[in-house]
Amino acid sequence: MRYPLAASMLALALLAGCSSTPMSSDQGASVEDRSAGAGTIPTVRPDQPQGAGLAALRDPNNILSKRAIMFDYDSFTIRGQYMPLIEAHGRFLAANPQMKMLIQGSADERGSREYNLALGQKRSDAVKKALMLLGAKEGQIESVSLGEEKPQCTERTEACYAENRRGEMLYAGEF
């Protein structure tokens, strides 16, 4: 059975002014007046922050232009192949204490959104810890998670899932 329910966008707006007189008082069977205010729920639109880029970190020939670190399934250790990248950024942050970094961790889409958010956080934390071992200061780095909400790759393949298990390093102005 299918119930194509007709749109009645204004109905709630017109709900204001409803009153009721229950016949059996124990029932309290009155038409719910979800208050005049609730009738029209206002739509909120947050501002979109925009930041300026940092040219020095965008030279494709510079290792610092690389920002992503992938993780194995159910793993939170940084693979050997990413050591040079971590070292480069760690030293850059150490040498430029005024620079600030946001690390966004991600998870593949399988399973609970909130648990995946925690997994992404574990990955961004692993990157943060590694950078701090290389001389970056705690105050320079914030590690956060995007969970499964901002996938790099949207296909349902193992390769794609692997691509989405990542930590992304962004410098102030890039996010």
């Binding site: 204004l10 109905a11 017109l14 709900l15 002014g17 409803c18 009153s19 009721s20 007189t21 229950p22 016949m23 059996s24 029932q27 069977a29 009155s30 038409v31």
Partner: peptide, 9 residues
Amino acid sequence: LTLTMTPAQ
């Protein structure tokens, strides 16, 4: 039960 309504309700 008895209810009072506007047509929109």
